[in-house]
Nucleic acid binder design. Structure first.
Lengths: 98, 98
DNA sequence: TATTTAACTTTGAAAAACAAAGCACTTTTA
DNA sequence: TAAAAGTGCTTTGTTTTTCAAAGTTAAATA
C-alpha cells in the first residue's frame, strides 16, 4: 500500500479554492462579484484565495470595462486545468476502492 | 445557480482526515501505527486528527491487546460512513459538470 | 537493567482563514 | 451637485487550524 493522499494538491485542500476552480472549469470567465456571491464570501477572503490561485498560475485575471464601469473577471489557465484534473484523479483513485 | 461548496463537509477539508476516512471505508479496522506509516505523520499530528474524527462520531476507537501489549485500532461508524458518502456525493456533484 | 515500542497528551509555534475596515475610483440616485 | 452605493481590492488584526517536538505510561525486548 502507498500513501493515499500523497498525490492530492495542497492548494485544493481549501473548499473555497476547490469551488473557484470547479466554477472556472465550466465557465470561461467569471467576475469577482459572481464568485463572491456564489461562494458567499467576503471581499477580502475571496481576494486572498484568488491570489493564492493566481500565484500558482492556476487562474488569470482580466481587468476590463463593461461600458465605462470596471469589471474584473477570472479564467482558468492551462496549468490550472491540468493541476485540477490531476487532483480530481488522485481523489478518485483514493476513493475508487469503495 | 447555487453555492457549489455548501454541501462539502468542513471536517473533510483536511487531506489527512480524508485519507483516514478513505482507508477506513475499505478496511474494517486499522491500527494507529498503520495509519501513521501509511499517511506519513507524526504521532501527535495523527492523534489530533483522529480525535477530531472521533469527536464528530465518525470513527470509533478500540483499545485492546495483542497478548499483553496494547493495541489501538480504529473503525468507521455508520454516521461516519454516511457523512463521508455525502461529502463525496457533494464533491461529485460539484465536478460532474466537467 | 537499559532501551525500545505503542499510543497518546501537552505545549507552543507557524500557517492559514477570515471578517472588518479602509481606499480609490466610478456611477447612480436624490 | 452632493450623497450614496458599487467594484475590487489591500491592510490589519483576530481566530482557527495545523503540526512537530517533547514528555508520559506501561509493556516488551535485549
Amino acid at each position: 500500500m502507498k500513501n493515499p493522499i500523497a498525490d492530492l494538491n495542497k492548494i485544493f485542500d481549501s473548499r473555497i479554492r476547490l469551488g473557484v476552480m470547479s466554477m472556472l472549469v465550466v465557465n470561461d470567465e467569471i467576475g469577482f462579484n459572481d464568485l463572491k456571491q456564489m461562494l458567499e464570501l467576503t471581499d477580502g477572503n475571496l481576494a486572498s484565495h484568488l491570489n493564492t490561485l493566481e500565484q500558482a498560475d492556476f487562474i488569470k485575471v482580466h481587468k476590463g470595462f463593461i461600458g465605462r464601469k470596471t469589471s474584473t473577471t477570472y479564467s482558468i489557465t492551462a496549468l490550472g486545468k491540468q493541476a485540477f484534473k490531476a487532483h480530481l484523479d488522485a481523489l478518485e483513485k483514493m476513493i475508487r476502492k469503495l
